[in-house]
Design a protein around this nucleic acid. Sequence first.
DNA 1: CGTATTCATGGCGATATGGCCATGAAAGAA
DNA 2: TTCTTTCATGGCCATATCGCCATGAATACG
Lengths: 107, 107
Amino acid sequence: MNLKSRRQYEARARIAKALAHPSRLLILDALADGERCVCELTPLVGADQSTVSKHLAVLRNAGIVEDRKDGVMTYYRVKICCLQGLWQCIESVLKQNFDEQRAAMEV
Amino acid sequence: MNLKSRRQYEARARIAKALAHPSRLLILDALADGERCVCELTPLVGADQSTVSKHLAVLRNAGIVEDRKDGVMTYYRVKICCLQGLWQCIESVLKQNFDEQRAAMEV
DNA sequence: CGTATTCATGGCGATATGGCCATGAAAGAA
DNA sequence: TTCTTTCATGGCCATATCGCCATGAATACG
């Protein structure tokens, strides 16, 4: 079974937790092809600027994004390169769920 | 940028949310090499049996595990095959965070 | 039959999360 | 300097999550 320590599961869960919000996933998607400032992300998310800032802080604290200050702006960018594989995994779960639901409907 | 719909981000976030708890990650690890009943998982998690049942329900509702009832037991098993890649992504984030922390210490 | 075991669920309290508002710091413009 | 823009943070409230306890359903065993 090779179980890991409680600490390691907590560390993993912190990363997953940072990804567990639709607005943060939208932000990561928007950052996929380059850095964006908060003022660009705010209308995309469609929430208050303070709310977007807090979401970005969650992603930054998890080590998923990093920021660069330029004058009065703060630009955020994705710091990791494996997100694509992560989405594929999640999408495969969603597809399987969808297929099963459809199969259940057709019975 | 190719942003997706709010619904798609919510669907993705539900999957991530189901993974965002150390006890549930421990459970998935324990299920990695085969099915286990609740009575086996409960001492591993170290929580109340009802707590473990609820964690399993979260994973089941997300479509990550499925169950099989045999007599008075319920056996759970992982339903998806891409978890390994997901762990690799999360571990790469953790490793990078750790490396950066160490680098900051050594300055 | 009655009893024991296994598991799921409702309830409840403590804590965490997420949203907006208000505020303040920092940088640039006038 | 004063005003504006950009962003982060504290406060507050509503909601969600998580833990345990208690209970009930279903099956197995005497």
